[in-house]
Design a binder for these strands. Structure first.
Length: 566
RNA sequence: CUGGGUGUGGCGCAGAUGGUAGCGCGCAAGAAUGGGGUUCUUGAGGCCGCUGGUUCAAGUCCAGUCACCCAGACCA
């Protein structure tokens, strides 16, 4: 491809709408343009990368015996109503009606559709195991699209679904996907880690997320520094550790704490540390109101709360409910005399002595409150792990980092097959629900994650496998016929052996060409300059600052070697 | 949804106390130059997000509205 003909409107300046590096570079390097919030158009270079990632995914999925199909993105509401997710997904779904008022949505995910396909076509244990996948556009009306393509409202997802007759079979299908995912993300040049993830309140028996370490990631991941334990913070458990506290139980006392409602303010007021407090947070869980108590320096882990309550929706209660349940303004909730359906008490609160809590009375707190003596509740693990905690697996030191979730593999079990009556006849002639797994990869997000991890101040540094083009040939001075001729010659030779190559035949200065080549991240650059009269050109890798002078006729061999071709 | 911020040529921005829009980059033409976004000359391009109001006069003040960004909440 000739750069002079390529639709590649690179941007010299950083668009003001982009905050994070991958987003900025995707715009600057002319990979894509925004159409609306969370909606993007892909330009030639961006599309090529997308297609390459898709192709890697396809190859590795096929290698594990999965078969590709393609479903519609336009989905009738019936299946969703059948699985009861029409309302659960709620405002996240783009819903629409046809001319006859029949309801549809743009598919946010396809469990129902694949389950439907299977229940219609599969009757016998002999038809399984089976793994079907598609690479298809998904639509989710996100509350807050973010960071360009990192969380967008339209995105390409590879979603796969496995169908097995036994739980062992599901494990095997799951492991196959685990292997495939490892190969996929490795080929994409990502530094990633498969971590344990929550399976959600809706059931399922196992779940792993493929996380790319990155500060801009939305997930928090717990890593052990001494063993291989890694888990989403939602999942990582904390335990009931009984502490030896050399302190007498003191008498409960109500204290006036005007204008002090946050832990921060209270810490100053009492001149103490946050761990001496227990905060009581009021939540609405479906139709119930619950309170959760954790130590003042901890965060409630809402996933754990949801799992305990087995509820669908959990959200912080609004001011009105707080006033109703506590009889006080927001900021003074406590366990004593609170009117909630259930009071959840984190282990640490149970094990602490003489805590300071809200008094359920505006402007008052109570000191020296102790679990068992002054209040009761359901004790459990309801907080986030912190780096003061020990590894749940080996007791070692842990660290917590942010991560981008690029893939998720999930043992669904019979959740959908039971709800939607997807059954098969087993060897004994008995009807049983099909055992399912589902496996997703965000293609666009993977692309962004690769850029997050592979860039420098000049631009993207594409890993060879997913680079839009592998080589760029740069004649330095377009007026120099010898340079141009030699460059064209190299370009043709590389193209002839099937290498994806660009030639920057624009009448621009060398600096412009180099900067663009660096910005769009082409792995190999061949520069044809003055020394061509001695038959010498330059070979440079984007990932290195080293410039190697080679003979003109060595270029093909050198490029092949760099691309690890025979 | 809550809180904060921003909307001025394609991009990045400037436009005190209201007086009818400017800079850099880019774009077009020409010339010189030719190894890291070169230089000079000339030129094209803007209902100042939208609607309404105040005023002799609104990019500027007021109200509403829309869009976009960020933090949080939320996310099979």
């Amino acid at each position: 491809m000739r750069v002079s003909k390529l639709f590649m409107p690179t941007l010299r300046e950083v668009p003001s709408e982009a905050e994070i590096v991958s987003h900025q570079l995707m715009l600057r390097a002319a990979l894509m343009r925004k159409l609306a919030s969370g909606v993007y158009n892909f330009l030639p270079l961006g599309l090529r990368v997308l297609r390459k990632i898709e192709e890697i995914v396809r190859q590795e999925m096929n290698r594990e015996g999965a078969q590709e199909i393609l479903c519609s993105a336009l989905l009738p509401s019936e299946l969703w109503k059948e699985s009861k997710r029409w309302d659960v997904f709620g405002p996240e779904m783009f819903k629409l009606k046809d001319r006859n008022d029949r309801e549809f949505c743009l598919g946010p995910t396809h469990e129902e559709i694949f389950t439907d396909i299977i229940r219609n076509e599969i009757k016998s244990y002999k038809d399984m195991p089976l793994n079907l996948y598609q690479i298809q556009t998904k639509y989710r009306d996100e509350r807050r699209p973010r960071f360009g393509v990192m969380r967008s409202r339209e995105f390409i997802m590879k979603d796969a679904y496995s169908f097995d007759t036994t739980w062992e079979g599901l494990d095997e299908s799951f492991n196959k996907m685990h292997r495939a995912y490892n190969r996929i993300f490795r080929r994409c040049g990502l530094d990633f880690k498969a971590v344990e993830a929550d399976t959600g309140a809706m059931g399922g028996t196992g779940s792993m997320e493929f996380m790319v370490k990155s500060d801009i990631g939305e997930a928090e991941v717990v890593f052990c520094t001494s063993c291989d334990y890694a888990a989403n913070i939602e999942k990582a458990p904390t335990f009931d550790v009984e502490l030896e506290i050399n302190e007498e139980y003191k008498d409960v006392k109500k204290v006036k704490t005007p204008n002090s409602r946050t832990i921060d303010e209270l810490t100053k007021f009492f001149d103490t540390t946050p761990d001496k407090f227990a905060k009581t947070l009021i939540y609405r869980a479906d139709d119930k109101v619950v309170a959760v108590m954790v130590r003042g320096d901890r965060d409630v882990n809402e996933t754990k709360v949801i799992n305990h309550l087995k509820c669908i929706n959990l959200e912080m209660a609004d001011e009105e409910i707080v006033k109703e349940t506590t009889g006080a303004n927001v900021g003074f909730a406590g366990p004593i005399g609170i009117k909630v359906d259930e009071l959840l008490v984190d282990y640490e609160v149970k094990n602490a002595k003489n805590l300071i809590v809200g008094a359920n009375e505006t402007d008052y707190h109570i000191v020296n409150v102790n679990f068992g003596r002054d209040f009761e509740g359901t004790v459990g693990d309801f907080r986030n792990i912190t780096n003061e905690d020990r590894c749940p697996k080996c007791g070692g030191k842990i660290t917590i980092n942010r991560g981008i979730e690029v893939g998720h593999i999930f043992k669904l079990g019979t959740k959908y097959s039971e709800k939607m009556k997807a059954t098969f006849i087993d060897e004994k002639g008995e009807e049983r629900p099909i055992i399912m797994g589902c496996y997703g990869i965000g293609i666009n997000r993977t692309m962004a994650a690769v850029i997050e991890q592979n860039h420098d101040e000049k631009g993207i540094i594409w890993p060879v496998e997913i680079a839009p083009y592998q080589v760029i040939v740069v004649p330095v001075v377009m007026k120099d016929e010898e340079q141009v001729k030699a460059a064209e010659n190299i370009y043709n030779k590389l193209q002839d052996i099937g290498i994806e190559v660009l030639i920057d035949d624009r009448d621009e200065r060398a600096g412009v060409k180099f900067n663009d080549a660096d910005l769009i991240g082409i792995p190999i650059r061949i520069t044809v300059g003055k020394k061509i009269k001695d038959g010498i050109v330059e070979f440079k890798l984007r990932s290195s600052s080293e410039v190697i002078e080679i003979k003109e006729d060595e270029v093909v061999a050198k490029v092949k070697e760099a691309l690890k071709m025979s």
